[in-house]
């Protein structure tokens, strides 16, 4: 007989009962559907205890590393402490603004110091609060290397949050964030052949973290980063990415300009959308890890194309939230 601990209460699991059945028998209403490990409606997160491997079968490697599992097929040997995926999103932290700087005419970089160290993976996102206003922003910083949390915020003409951050928030101000969240981070996969990152606008933020994280973890296969903007003035971190390219021969950076003709391209830049440039460079992506962030239409199209060109769905990473800047 083992126990399942959920929301501070402990439940005796009967022999041969799944974790899901145990919760339901105790009138705890969690979403579920197929009860055979297929639909993933019931996925939860384990915070303590051992889960049998079959209860993580077919989840993404990133999800497995976060302790995600399928309660409907999980019959653990010992005790488990579990949380709903929503609960992980409610953890609030106080941060102090330590740097505010515009990276170009429309994108603000905020560097934040967290009161208590925040455990996160490069590429995850946080929610930022201003009263009732909540927006999601990807973390651009790399834990262990960057001391501060880094956010890239695009000013949206009608955006209440982005205008407040750009105009009113001052260095020294305290802000409230929740997280980290999301599965858009690098995690080693057996037999991986390369890493393709495609982003537009401030969608570079998580990719800047993910690429540096993969390099720091000793990723030796090719890494391709395509960053798209309308014109050269709308790009940022060009020098930083060029330096990274020089330091790592397996990393290639492609700045892509959608509104500039080939004849007028600045040196070393590409004409077109970043997803088109990406697949022209790399027409097959079997066993590649794919990271996408930015314009929702670009993300959807690229996801589908990468899958049709051979990438496994479990190796395609994109955040569920939509960038306000691109909506």
């Amino acid at each position: 007989m083992s126990k399942v601990v959920y929301q501070g209460r402990s439940y005796e699991r009967q022999d041969d009962e799944t974790v899901l059945r145990c919760l339901l028998r105790n009138e705890i209403h969690v979403p579920y559907s197929c009860e055979s490990g297929a639909c993933q409606s019931c996925v939860m997160q384990v915070t303590s205890g051992e889960i049998p491997p079959n209860s993580q079968e077919d989840l993404k490697e990133t999800q497995k590393s976060l302790g995600y599992f399928k309660p409907c097929v999980c019959k653990p040997e010992g005790d488990l402490e579990i949380i709903a995926l929503d609960d992980a999103h409610k953890q609030k932290h106080r941060v102090t603004v330590v740097e505010k700087c515009f990276l170009n005419g429309e994108i603000l970089r905020l560097r934040l110091a967290c009161d208590e160290p925040l455990e996160y993976r490069a590429g995850q996102f946080i929610n930022l609060f201003n009263g009732d206003l909540i927006r999601s922003y990807s973390l651009a910083s790399l834990p262990g290397s960057d001391e501060m949390l880094e956010l890239h915020i695009k000013r949206v003409p009608t955006g209440a949050m982005s205008n407040w951050l750009c105009d009113d928030v001052q260095v020294g101000d305290q802000l409230s964030i929740a997280g980290p969240m999301g599965e858009c981070f690098y995690h080693e996969v057996d037999g991986e052949e390369g890493l393709l990152a495609v982003g537009t606008g401030s969608g570079l933020a998580p990719l800047w973290g993910v690429v540096r994280d993969a390099l720091a973890q000793g990723f030796e296969k090719p890494i391709i980063l395509c960053h798209g903007a309308m014109s050269a003035e709308n790009l940022y971190y060009v020098d930083e990415l060029r330096r990274l390219e020089k330091a790592h021969p397996n990393f290639s950076y492609f700045p892509c300009l959608s509104d500039v003709d080939v004849a007028e391209l600045p040196a070393g830049m590409f004409s077109g959308y970043p997803n088109d440039v990406a697949f022209a460079q790399q027409p097959t992506v079997v066993k590649w890890q794919i990271f996408l962030c930015g314009h929702p239409e670009m993300v959807d199209q690229t996801k589908r194309k990468a899958f049709l060109l051979g990438a496994s769905l479990t190796d395609i990473h994109a955040d569920p939230f939509v960038l306000a800047s691109s909506a």
Binding site: S33, C34, S36, A38, C39, D58, K303, F307, L313, I316
Partner: peptide, 23 residues
């Protein structure tokens, strides 16, 4: 949504192959 759709495809294949399902 491709991820949700893939989960449905899996449920369909599981059923077509006579595996455990509640559909």
């Amino acid at each position: 949504d491709m991820d949700k759709q893939a989960a449905k495809q899996k449920a369909f294949l599981t059923m077509a192959l006579g595996g455990p399902n509640n559909y």
